[in-house]
């Protein structure tokens, strides 16, 4: 356990060195958020139809999305990717750490370190100047923290599953290309899930992706009751477990194949 913590710490330090990248990231996030807010504002101005969310809620949703964007599994660890591509992964097998958890820790640091660094200023600026609201109650805020933790472990487990598919390089790259847009749509990043047509809602509700982003945000907004957050957290964990089992199984098969090929 200590080894894994050290690993996460080391990755944090590496990622923290890129200060310009962090500053630029904050700027980028604010800018993209602003575009989205303006687009929604224009739409709300054009129509008096009742909408699934109020404009004020949408603004908060958008800024939460910009703050937490880094948690979404929308890219893979390029070091691991290169390792798999070049076959150097054999060296990783020699280390006295479990490969799955080793990479999982890297994924964890990669998702959490930059997000911690970026989300605080983004949320602060958005609350001060850009119309972001606080949660309606303390309970909603706590529920949000809980489901955000659920989202982190879920996202890392999902990212690992996609990473491991790269053992089968050709199809792996295709899977990666196909899966990442799915995350983009079904997590709520492209559009808050409530805005998709009614007939899509049961599907959206069933898929694991809403746990990556949409769920914590709705808890934050109070649209999901704080008490309801606990069973939802359970669902997040169930999906996480499923991804971990699938990822470990695939990884075991991948390394076996690698060893068999002698590559």
């Amino acid at each position: 356990m200590k080894g894994y913590l050290a690993l996460i710490g080391a990755r944090f330090r590496v990622l923290l060195q890129y200060r310009a990248a962090a500053a630029a990231g904050i700027g980028t996030q604010l800018f993209f958020g602003l575009i989205r807010v303006m687009i929604f504002q224009a739409f709300y101005r054009s129509s008096a139809h009742p909408q699934p969310m109020s404009y004020v809620d949408i603004v908060t949703y958008i800024w939460l999305g910009q703050a937490m964007l880094g948690l979404l599994p929308w890219n893979l660890d390029s070091d691991v990717q290169n390792m798999l591509r070049s076959g150097n992964v054999s060296y990783e097998l020699v280390r006295p750490l479990d490969l799955y958890w080793h990479w999982y820790c890297r994924a964890f640091a990669m998702r959490v370190a930059p997000t911690l660094l970026r989300s605080v200023p983004v949320i602060a600026l958005a609350m001060l100047f850009l119309g972001m609201q606080t949660p309606p109650s303390l309970a909603s805020g706590l529920g949000w923290l809980l489901t955000t933790c659920g989202a982190v472990v879920l996202n890392c487990a999902f990212m690992m599953l996609v990473t491991v598919s790269l053992f089968w390089t050709l199809t792996g790259e295709g899977i990666q290309r196909a899966v990442l847009p799915l995350v983009y749509v079904f997590s709520g990043m492209l559009l808050p899930l409530a805005f998709w047509p009614a007939w899509m809602q049961p599907l959206l509700h069933f898929l694991p992706f809403r746990g990556m982003m949409d769920l914590p945000f709705r808890v934050y907004l109070g649209q999901v009751a704080p008490l309801q957050a606990v069973p939802e957290f359970g669902i997040q964990l169930l999906w996480t477990a499923a991804f971990i089992v699938a990822g470990r199984t695939l990884l075991a098969r991948g390394t076996r194949r690698l060893v068999a090929q002698g590559g």
Binding site: G9, F12, L16, Q17, R19
Partner: peptide, 14 residues
């Protein structure tokens, strides 16, 4: 130059 340790990394931001 980069400073060592976690604190150094944070200080390096500034």
């Amino acid at each position: 130059e980069r400073q060592a340790g976690m604190w150094g990394a944070v200080r390096g931001l500034v």
